[in-house]
Write a protein that binds this DNA or RNA. Structure first.
Lengths: 179, 179
DNA sequence: TAGCGCATGTAACGCGTTACATGATTAC
DNA sequence: GTAATCATGTAACGCGTTACATGCGCTA
């Protein structure tokens, strides 16, 4: 598992509150790992108990107090251990592929519609990724090592979306949606 | 969720035991949806209670008895409803991408090794998929509709592996593993 | 005054993994 | 004898989602 590790990764560069983390998991990091605020708050509680994080309440004028979390030495070691350990890839669990096995046994139209929708979503996401790439990662070879890592995650996202868009084309054509 | 739906999909064509299902989830269907035998047995229990399946104990000579499960009318309706309903795509949750964000903060070598391993695994899986494609799905346009669906799932698998292999190439090159 | 952004949580439930558990037959 | 295959399960725990819950300040 890795939500705790994703949180620690986010805390490497700056201390953040649960709320900040939730926002971060809605973008950037969240492109590759989603988490709701509920899950984040619960995980933070556990991580405090384990001693991976320390917390510090900050009073704010005109806003609710916030609790800033920071990575401890124990947390950093746990994170390093995890990065270095091999983790096995888990299978995708894509509903859509299972649904395809059913296409001969029920009305194919809604499924075709779902594929078309997916393609649109992917195109939107791809456009976003490409914009980020252009602005911040135009020349990957010249980046420092840590930003190379982030670039590679982004590149994987781009390839993923691109691949899925192409597959949707093939599917829609084969299923006669373009006829 | 969809394990129950994946099970019903497998039962569309033939009645199977928990053991048979577990084997099926190790190949074909399992390329896109993995499940352990423990999970399958528990799910079967729930599905019987819900009335989506019926069961029938079969005595066998020289082997343990087996319990064959069959899809009921209620089960088929539930399956149809699910296929037709839009389900939202969930994000990938790939550890590797999160690890990449850490690459500037710890020893990159093990991570590079993991990427190389992943690439090998993908190549093996791709070879398997291509063999299946060649043998059973060489001419997708001529297939009946239900086999077109299965072909498309396979095609997605092929594209996925291919994409990941290409990405690993890029990653290994950028991280200087080929130098 | 209605809604959004900031900020934090609890509770219940279901999915998924790991470990534990049994017992017969067949092939080496 | 020892391992693999066939065949079925239980128990405990952890991850993830959904629903529920509160309360302040700012803006339209």
């Amino acid at each position: 598992m890795a939500l705790s590790h994703a949180i620690m990764t986010a805390l490497l560069e700056e201390n953040l509150s649960g709320y900040d983390l939730a926002k971060k998991f809605d973008m950037s990091l969240g492109f590759f790992w989603q988490a709701s605020h509920q899950q984040i708050y619960q995980e933070l509680k556990k991580m405090l108990e384990r001693g991976w994080l320390s917390s510090d309440t900050v009073e704010q004028a005109g806003k609710p107090n916030k609790i800033l979390y920071a990575l401890t030495g124990d947390g950093k070691s746990a994170l390093d251990d995890w990065v270095v350990a091999q983790t096995k890839a888990r299978s995708a669990k894509e509903d859509l592929y299972v649904k395809l096995y059913n296409i001969g046994h029920c009305d194919p139209e809604p499924l075709i519609g779902e594929i078309a929708d997916r393609q649109l979503q992917c195109q939107r996401q791809l456009a976003l990724y490409l914009k980020i790439k252009e602005r911040h990662y135009a020349e990957p070879e010249t980046l420092p090592i840590n930003r190379k890592g982030i670039y590679l995650a982004l590149s994987a996202g781009i390839r993923q979306q691109q691949m899925h868009i192409d597959w949707c084309d093939e599917a829609l054509e084969l299923l006669g949606a373009l006829a």
